[in-house]
Design a binder for these strands. Sequence first.
RNA 1: GCCGGGGUGGCGGAACUGGCAGACGCUCAGGACUUAAAAUCCUGUGGCCUUCGGGCCGUGCGGGUUCGAUUCCCGCCCCCGGCACCA
Length: 876
Amino acid sequence: MPDYKPQTIEKKWQERWRDSRAFEVAEDPSKQKFYCLEMFAYPSGHAHVGHVRNYMIGDVVARMKRMRGFNVLHPFGWDAFGLPAENAAIKNRTHPETWTLENIAHMKGQLQRLGISYAWEREIATCLPEYYHWNQWVFLKMLERDLAYRRRSTVNWCPSCNTVLANEQVIDGACWRCGTTVTTRELEQWFFRITHYADELLDATDTLTDWPEKVLTMQQNWIGRSEGARVRFALGGPEQLLASGSRLLAESGPTAAEGKTNQQPAANSQQPTIEVFTTRIDTIYGANFLMLSPEHPVVQEWSREAGADEFRRNLQRFQAQDRNARMIGEIEKEGFDTSRTAINPFTGRPVPIWVANFVLIEYGTGAVMGVPGHDQRDFEFAKKYNLPITIVVQPEGEKLTVETMTEAKPGAGKLVESGEYNGLDWEEANHKMTVDAEARGIGEGTVQYRLKDWGISRQRYWGTPIPVVYCESCGMVPVPADDLPVMLPKIAEFSGRGDSPLAQIPEFVNTTCPKCGKPARRETDTMDTFVDSSWYFFRFCDPHNSELPFDPEKVTYWGPVDFYSGGVEHAILHLIYSRFFTRVFRDLGMTTLSEPFTRLLTQGMVLKNGQVMSKSKGNVVDPDDMIQKYGADALRLYVMFVAPPEKEIEWTDAGLEGSWRFLARVWRLVDSLADTIGGEGIPTPAEVELNDAERALRRKTHDTIRRVTLDLDPRVHLNTAISGLMELVNELYAFCNNSDCLRIGQTASDAASVGVVERAATVAVLKESVEALVKMISPFTPHMAEELWEKLGHSSGIVAAGWPAFDEAVAKAEEVVIPVQINGKLRARLTVPADISEEQLRQIALSDPAVVKHLEGKTVRKVVIANGRLVSIVAG
RNA sequence: GCCGGGGUGGCGGAACUGGCAGACGCUCAGGACUUAAAAUCCUGUGGCCUUCGGGCCGUGCGGGUUCGAUUCCCGCCCCCGGCACCA
């Protein structure tokens, strides 16, 4: 008997699958589709076993669905633009393209050696013009619809490297490369108006019933919807302000530029005002001061006034404070008095205006009302600067006094010291005061989001060129769709310094205006690579389309993605951007879908020595090494067996070896029996008379099919599915070992030990069981399963054979073991026929010797029979 | 601080709707085979006690509901992840 030699088998089947285009698919309305997708790969160089775990999970689902008769789309591609390629180019003096394409070639080989059932003819790489053309196309469409716009915005800047950094490249406020403290710069940036869909993206999380709770919560927090009110405080105080103030405030409010949803309504009176955002307008009678962000336009204006030297000094001190430290609240809360006042529109009293370093310009209006009685930050601020504290909400059953208060009291209660609102419950007051504010024209109810518009400009080379030009006479002009793609030019030298690398290529920059034909300059920034990954799942439906990003008909057939798996690190960015893009395509009439991914599985990482695998830690396990030693099938089985897909796993060589041993055990079993059960004319078990052992094996077989089927679909409990298969194998060994003629061989020389089986019934049962086993294991270990299937005398592949069916009646045990509890303790086990009546069961239980013994001297008070599965006796 | 997920043998993990806790695997121990070893096959493997029949304890901790709780409820402790001065 040949030993299990995975390497030869795997090569053979991978070639066959490739040559027969086994996993290539076309739209087929007569078949139900299934779109199975794993997050495509960043071609970083070498895949390690952590990367490939994700692809194996998807492959099991895809292969199983294929066997169940679905038309399965299972594509793969490369998220090929991005910074590492540029850094590698600087370091190794290669071109990012060379580096990227070489990595793709290598990683593709690795994935193919794992035998993943991808439709490789649909492979895409986002760095190719055939793909990024359509990024540009979508950009133009969004520009037409005002979903893309340009404004000045603050970016991270490394003064040492002289370049812009992405947020992800700012580690604890310092440049990831050189460690210099990061500063900020104002630059013109392109934005996608994702906030236009903020409400929809938030509300629709309810429809994502097959997403992990964790991811939905993260997205909800990220969008951060909070309902409240904007209230305007009229400026009072020094008369001279009024003149400059009115001009100021017409354009005030940092959020004016934020985007539509955040747009501030123009002040409806001539009087200059400061607008605040609050979720607790009901506490406004306790608003004893205002606090403005140092970046607030009014503050900026005041600092420019003559004689404001001290004001400027104070302000500069705040502005010099580490921006990142300020953002994460690590520095002390401080403020300074502007010596100006505003009128609280509800109390009519003047309140001082302060500048506070903890007020964020990015959120709300950049101005807040200080309610020290009911907000902890305001409380601390008031204590520090001796500002008055007023209690305006009394909690139920408490009597707060300012004198005894040691901290602010947020939360529920009834209003006091609030004029006409006294006695109202806070929620009622909140509503009423909002309505009143609107009626009086001093404010309005509003919804505030944490979500900001998506800044997509990157001052980088290795990305999609943004397809606009700037003309001296026409201004910003989009590149006409017919002129797309704007090709990314080859670049010779990468220094890693300076602004956008594209700005250094005159042949690229200098162009003519599409409108007037005069000289113009191209936009030299490229798009964030998250743009690439926001719609690639649509491109897979129609990857070679040269007219459109995709044919809507094809997306209608394949979409949405039925099963999507990937790392939880994408829970917010990629997954929210993809949901946004799907809605953009919907509103462009390209699809009727709103949500791209029906079911999401976030797979756990593979750790080694308790740490994430990385080159720098030196704990990377290369799949190729494992394949060489144990074969791809053993590797696949191991990573899926060791823990549920969502959990992290700790890599152990011993575990992999165990999986290999199991596969060798299956191999010996099937190989030993192949001659016996692989012949023609073997009856089905239903056609013959079975003895007890045969019936038991048949029951186990059908029960295993039932369990494994449910574990794979709809649950994706791959680890328990495998343990079910292991149990079946153990049962088959026991069955054979208890039979005189069926000892399973160990080595080639043992082949003779498998005798001729006389009983037709035994052969029938074994055939059914072994064939079901081979079919069910095939999604996990496809190469071995195909080889065994061939050994069993089948010439067409295992997918064509279909997924095994089970008979509920056969799967059911004829005899069951019923535990008997007395006062909650297990006292006996009864073996009874499965169809026993409750009355009979009660009789047998009460007359069982062990039960009788334990009931001695006690009276039975109650006997509970729990859906025929357990007897519980209460006695005392 | 807020939100989410967890805590089960030496280890990874099972346990579906409240019904035999520890499936399956790893590790370890013993047996068979072998000149021997490896491999393989078989058996055992939560703790304590045992007259070998079995008994008691046991799913982070403390309570509760229930005939019965890893599962449900209340109150804690600890770990992991996300967000975080969001007004």
